[in-house]
Every structure is written in structure tokens, then in C-alpha cells.
Simulated scan of single mutants.
Amino acid sequence: MNRTGKNAPPPEEAAKPARKGDRHQEAVRLLRRMILAGDLPPGEPLREVAFSEQFGMSRTPVREAFRTLAGEGLVSLLPNRTVQVAHLDEEAAAEVFTVLGALESLAARLACKRMTPEQLEILSELQEDMERYFETRDRPRYLEANRLIHELIVESSANPSLLLAWRLLLPRAERARHVSTLDHDRWADAFEEHKQIHAALLRRDAAALSRLMEEHFDNGAASIRHETKQARARKRMAAYDGAASGEPPEPGRSGK
């Protein structure tokens, strides 16, 4: 047995090459992580050959991964087989946050009744991890702990239909969550909200938890809309500064 307590696969099975579906999922996972982390910025062209070489796989799973990520709103499939990282539609992202908040509000209410003592213990461990990463400003690890907390709460609702709907929306919300934590004030507020959510779950206070969860997502949506407004203001100021200095405006910097 291996250290997880499960029987290790026989040598002949372990030596089998990865199946086509496995390679596809691996390509999706790697590309999604790179996009969410900002390693592949909006508008970045994506080339099958380059990623197939980087990931050590054929072009087919990479091409299929592009289609999967396009369905999640992370990739744009343009004419002439051009593929690029999609630009974030902030208003659409804010709307997804609102819907996801309603789903997680219901999940939280159910989780208060159905979460096991073991799941509560895991939740507390994840909360401690998130606090440590917040204090050290380790944003990637903080976001992963945050994701695991939300996932645990939804899974603890023990409602397969709710979990399915949540998983369909999650990829679109994850990118917005990564963007919203770039605002330090929103990051700090979100962390405080998580502490209240954790405390309500420990008390099994379903009414308070449902309200806190919905407010958590409403605040996230408001933060995204605020950042959009600020970005437009920065573009206008850059255009004004360029006009004052006599420099021609940069393409796409008209503030529209």
C-alpha cells in the first residue's frame, strides 16, 4: 500500500502511457492555471505547437483544451484559427459573482445541517492556512486555500444538483476572484468576511451564514464594478496627459 492507504497500481498498469482524455485534462489544468495566475495576460496569442512542446504532448489535447477553456470564457477562438486569452468582461464577471453567491448561500444553509465533524475540522485547517497566506501576502496560495474552502462548503451541502451548477459557473468566477484580490483593500475585507463565515459555520448558524455568504459575493461583484470604473478613469487620465504633452494617444486608450 502507498502512504495514502490505497493499493498502488500494478507495475504494468503504472507503466501504461497517459490516455488521450488524461492528456486533455492535463492541458486544460495547466493552461487554466497560467491564465488565472496572469502568466498569460488578456490578448496573449496561444499557439498549439508551443504549448504541445512545453507540456510534452501532441497538439491534439492542446487544441481540445483551447475549446474547453473557450467554453469557460477564458480563451477566445477567433477567425483563421487564431486563439488568444480572452479579455475579462467585468460586468459579466460581476453577474456571475451574483449568481454564484446565491448558489453558495443555499449551499451554506444546507452545509450547516449536513457538514460532518471531520469536514468542520478540515474547514478550520483551511482557514488557518488562508490566514497564514494572507499575513505573508502569498496570493497564489491564499487563493487556492480560498477555493478549497468554498468547494468544501458546497460539497458539504450534499446536494449533487447544486454542486453541478456551481462547478459550471466556477471557472468564470475564479478569474474574477483573482482580479479582485489585486485590490489590497478588497483582499483585506474578503479575508475578514471569511473569518465571519467560518465562525457562523462553527456555530451552525444557518441564517447568519446564508446572509454572510451572499454579502461576500455581492461585495466581490461591487469590487469588480469599482475596478472597471477606476480602469476607465486611468485610461481617460492617460489620454488627457498625452494631449497635454502633445503626444498622440495610444491605441485603445480613448477611455471609451
Rank of each mutant, 00 (worst) to 15 (best):
N2F: 13
R3N: 09
R3G: 10
K6L: 09
P9F: 12
P11D: 01
E12F: 06
A14C: 02
A15C: 04
R19F: 08
R19N: 15
D22P: 05
D22C: 14
H24Q: 14
E26T: 13
V28Y: 00
L31A: 04
L31S: 03
M34Y: 10
M34V: 15
I35K: 02
D39I: 14
L40M: 07
G43F: 01
G43E: 04
E44A: 12
R47C: 10
E48Y: 07
A50E: 10
A50Y: 14
Q54K: 14
Q54I: 11
V62H: 00
R63H: 05
F66C: 05
R67V: 10
T68Y: 07
T68V: 15
G71M: 04
L77Y: 01
P79I: 07
T82Q: 11
Q84D: 13
L88F: 00
A92E: 07
V99K: 02
L100C: 02
G101H: 00
L106A: 13
L106S: 12
L106C: 13
R109E: 08
A111V: 00
C112F: 01
M115F: 03
M115C: 03
T116N: 15
T116C: 08
Q119R: 08
L120Y: 06
E121V: 12
L123W: 02
S124F: 14
E125Y: 15
Q127M: 15
E128K: 11
R132M: 10
R137W: 07
R137E: 15
D138E: 08
D138H: 06
P140D: 01
R147L: 11
L148E: 05
E151Q: 12
L152G: 05
I153R: 05
A158C: 10
S161L: 11
S161G: 10
A165I: 08
W166Y: 12
R167Y: 15
L168M: 14
L168K: 09
L169I: 01
R177L: 14
V179A: 09
T181F: 12
L182V: 07
L182K: 10
D183Y: 04
W187Y: 15
A188P: 06
H194D: 13
H194V: 05
L202I: 09
L202F: 11
L202P: 02
E215V: 12
H216D: 00
F217R: 00
N219V: 03
A221T: 00
A221Q: 00
E227A: 06
A231I: 11
R232H: 01
A233R: 15
R234I: 04
R236V: 14
A238H: 06
D241N: 08
G246M: 01
E247K: 11
R253H: 06
